[in-house]
Computed example of a mutant assay.
Amino acid sequence: MKEIIAVVRMNKVSTTKKALIEVGAAGFTASKVMGRGKLVEDKSVIAERRKTLLALAQKDDQVTEKMITEFLDGTRLFPRRLFNVLAHDEDVPKIIAAIIKANQTEYKVGDGKIFVLPTLDAVRVRTQESGDAAI
């Protein structure tokens, strides 16, 4: 039994939920979180992303520019969604593949992170079943 923790973009929440349901994940929870990932060191990727974000903002003001700069230099935390999925060991690869497919973008930065942890036990409150039966 494993716990899969996935940190995804806020605009990918619906896509991720659909992907988890389609792949047969037994259940999951989602929480709003704030964070940031590893900074991209390739200056050309950062410059291209900055240009794209400024164009999307459709505002030419210092507040927007400051927010985009802080996003790209890592000083600002941004909203993300944290999914927790309990899964049988044999289901882990297909769940991970579904999360990746739902969240991978062409941006080359900020697509998320997936962690897989061993889970010692689970208990279903309603029936008191434990272990794999509780999933």
Results as ranks from 00 to 15, higher is better:
residue 67 M to I: 08
residue 39 L to D: 00
residue 29 T to F: 03
residue 63 V to I: 15
residue 73 D to W: 05
residue 64 T to F: 12
residue 65 E to L: 02
residue 54 L to E: 13
residue 98 A to N: 11
residue 35 G to R: 00
residue 45 V to C: 06
residue 2 K to L: 00
residue 123 V to E: 06
residue 6 A to W: 02
residue 4 I to N: 01
residue 120 L to T: 02
residue 76 R to S: 12
residue 56 L to Y: 15
residue 3 E to F: 08
residue 67 M to D: 13
residue 4 I to D: 02
residue 28 F to L: 06
residue 23 V to T: 15
residue 73 D to V: 07
residue 12 K to N: 05
residue 117 L to Q: 00
residue 31 S to K: 08
residue 82 L to M: 13
residue 45 V to N: 03
residue 5 I to G: 01
residue 16 T to E: 12
residue 75 T to Y: 07
residue 4 I to T: 09
residue 43 K to P: 06
residue 82 L to P: 02
residue 105 T to R: 09
residue 52 T to K: 11
residue 42 D to L: 11
residue 49 R to Q: 14
residue 23 V to W: 01
residue 20 L to T: 08
residue 62 Q to W: 04
residue 14 S to H: 12
residue 64 T to D: 07
residue 11 N to W: 10
residue 7 V to Y: 00
residue 98 A to L: 08
residue 96 I to E: 09
residue 18 K to W: 03
residue 57 A to L: 14
residue 89 D to Q: 09
residue 97 A to G: 13
residue 2 K to I: 04
residue 65 E to D: 09
residue 54 L to W: 06
residue 71 F to V: 02
residue 118 P to V: 05
residue 25 A to E: 13
residue 71 F to L: 10
residue 16 T to Y: 02
residue 70 E to C: 00
residue 77 L to V: 07
residue 35 G to S: 05
residue 102 A to Q: 06
residue 79 P to N: 04
residue 122 A to Y: 11
residue 53 L to P: 13
residue 14 S to Y: 04
residue 37 G to K: 02
residue 97 A to S: 12
residue 14 S to D: 14
residue 46 I to M: 05
residue 16 T to R: 12
residue 105 T to G: 04
residue 70 E to Y: 04
residue 49 R to S: 08
residue 35 G to L: 05
residue 24 G to F: 01
residue 80 R to M: 08
residue 104 Q to Y: 06
residue 52 T to I: 09
residue 44 S to G: 05
residue 124 R to A: 09
residue 124 R to T: 00
residue 51 K to D: 13
residue 74 G to W: 13
residue 87 A to M: 04
residue 66 K to N: 12
residue 51 K to A: 11
residue 86 L to D: 01
residue 64 T to C: 10
residue 107 Y to C: 10
residue 27 G to A: 03
residue 61 D to A: 03
residue 122 A to S: 08
